[in-house]
Write a protein that binds this DNA or RNA. Structure first.
Lengths: 339, 339
DNA sequence: CCTGGCACTCAGCGCACGCGAGTGCCAGCG
DNA sequence: CGCTGGCACTCGCGTGCGCTGAGTGCCAGG
């Protein structure tokens, strides 16, 4: 177990390194912090911290920098979440209050987070897994061409073009439309597959059955895609503040950020409630091994419907970032609850 | 006027510089190209080209690099558009054919362009203003509640909820739906207002007239409000191939790319038909002064409904990039026409 | 257990130097 | 008049060297 003072030294190292971006030495530490001991003592502590793997030297005879493990300890034990100041909170609220619709809320949230944290912001769209079907519309655009329009209770509309195996009459279409809606309107996405399973059998003509089956399979496909999660990112320009060597650092990060799948997985790995901080190599994706991800769920009620967070260098201001992320999540939740 | 050979020298310089990313000297030129003259002669030509402002030296006693003006001449006079090879064309088609809806088409197009050109791709969503109406659907969700669904020929769908001043019967609704579609289907958005102006008069019941007027005003509102143009970008990771000094170069570019307004303006400045190449300082936005933008309109028919393009360093393979952009635009147009 | 002292390490910086790619100019040749 | 080979000159870049100073580890004494 590390002594109180050694933890204090670690905290000081993290704070200084985050501030200066340069390895911090024992002398500088005692000058900038009131540790009450001499540099020599600090050196001993540093040696101990290094033995434990919390800090490292980039090369012999240089100062120390925190390791991922060091940051982890810092986040878990040494640092709290820095609350936003009152003016900051007001600014957040003002900025988000101007949003006109869901897209706008998400867009504004991304901008806000990126600005507040000066890092890359990631915001997941509220999950639609609990959505219900409001209406299914079928439009005949050509004899064997049908457009499927799916309207959800959240007001989202999805449409698909369907090429039917055989021409499909207007009456059959109306029939199918009526049957379909009576079965699925108001039902949850998840329940739809069973509800429409036997629909083709209601039709006499074998050709119609084939068409109905085609329409249904397209509908199910659409439902799956609809529940797929979307997200928005912003503030990638902040990546340029990454470090001096960043040609090599920035590239894999940009690549990872372009793969929504990667990001969704990243957010998915985070805890559903409370704030999650993943530091450096704790991130499964290789390209993000030199970054930390701070994420938190947000939602209209007590329940989280999606997550948001930021991606930045492991050398980041954790308390400040966590404070900003938490505050933004809170206000976004409020906005969603109001609308 | 520059002699034929000097133009040839300029072409060689551009080609070599694009390939090697290093200033090209007279000796290297004569070795890599069959110019049929000695380095000394080339040097004279280079001096002339420099006097005219087509090339420059980064510092004395270094090779030459093309200026924006040099690239301009190269693009206008010296280089054609390099057509895609047959396998490339097949790959493009295969990749785009898999798209299921408009979002998917745009997303795939962005990925494709970014991959083909190894640059940043920008694709504008088909604009509503230049689109035509494929279908207007009216759904009765409650006695005095109608959902308006507007479907464009590009597959974009917009919907609005309408609270009617009075209950509106199914037959009246069907009547209105039929009249509406017969008037506006296939017409351009811009023409819709005049086409529906006198529709309320066709209805007997004063209450119905009120409802029809409400529906129409909502429709027109939708046309106006949703004129907002959207776009998608991708391939930002390719920015890392920008140059060696790129901390300073990449940052403003990333910032510009995050501002959709900037990008929309950028695309807006391009010609409506044919390919547009904006080189370096020809771009109004300061952050893009070291980039070139190759853009072209695309659309389902002969007419362009939106634009797409790539943003890359001024030192780019113009013929190849232009070929890729043109080919992708062509195939996207086909896909849109099919759906 | 803390401290001051001391010897040691080593990245970074400045500087000198030489190499070589590249240039401009010029006189000569077809 | 245009092309060419020759030649002197420029200058960025890589290399090697020595110095400096921040930082370290170790140790003996308080």
């Amino acid at each position: 177990m590390l002594s109180e003072r050694r933890l204090e030294v670690l905290r000081a190292i993290v704070q200084d390194y985050v501030g200066t971006e340069e390895p911090v030495g024992s002398k500088a530490l005692t000058e900038r912090h009131r540790l009450g001991v001499s540099p020599a003592t600090v050196r001993n502590d540093m040696a101990a911290l290094e033995d434990e793997g919390y800090i490292a030297q980039p090369h012999t005879s240089a100062g120390r920098i925190p390791t991922d493990k060091g940051y982890r300890l810092f986040v878990d034990k040494l640092a709290g979440v820095k609350p936003m100041t009152a003016p900051e909170r007001r600014a957040i609220q003002n900025f988000l209050d101007g949003a006109v619709d869901l897209d706008d809320v998400v867009a504004r949230t991304v901008r806000l987070l990126a600005q507040l944290t000066r890092q890359v912001a990631v915001v997941q769209y509220p999950s639609l897994t609990r959505s219900t079907v409001r209406h299914v519309e079928l439009l005949s655009l050509a004899p064997a061409r049908v457009m499927l329009v799916l309207i959800t209770d959240t007001g989202r509309v999805e449409q698909r073009m369907i090429d039917c195996p055989a021409p499909f009459g207007e009456t059959s279409l109306a029939d199918l439309r009526a049957r379909l809606n009576s079965r699925v309107a108001g039902r949850r996405f998840a329940d739809v597959p069973q509800l429409v399973q036997d629909l083709p059998e209601a039709f006499e003509e074998p050709e119609d059955r084939g068409t109905v089956a085609t329409v249904l399979s397209t509908l199910l496909e659409t439902l799956v895609e609809e529940t797929e999660e979307r997200l928005m990112i912003g503030g990638t320009a902040n990546l340029t503040r990454f470090g001096h060597d960043f040609p090599l650092t920035i590239r894999p990060v940009l690549e990872a950020l372009e793969e929504q799948v990667v990001l969704l997985k990243l957010l998915g790995e985070a805890k559903d409630s409370g704030m999650t901080v993943r530091i450096g190599h704790e991130n499964a994706h290789e390209g993000l091994n030199s970054t930390s991800v701070v994420s938190v769920g947000y939602g209209s009620g007590g329940e989280a419907v999606a997550k948001l967070g930021v991606v930045g260098p492991t050398r980041m201001d954790y308390p400040g970032t966590m404070g900003a992320v938490r505050a933004v999540a809170r206000y976004v939740g409020q906005i969603l609850a109001e609308s």
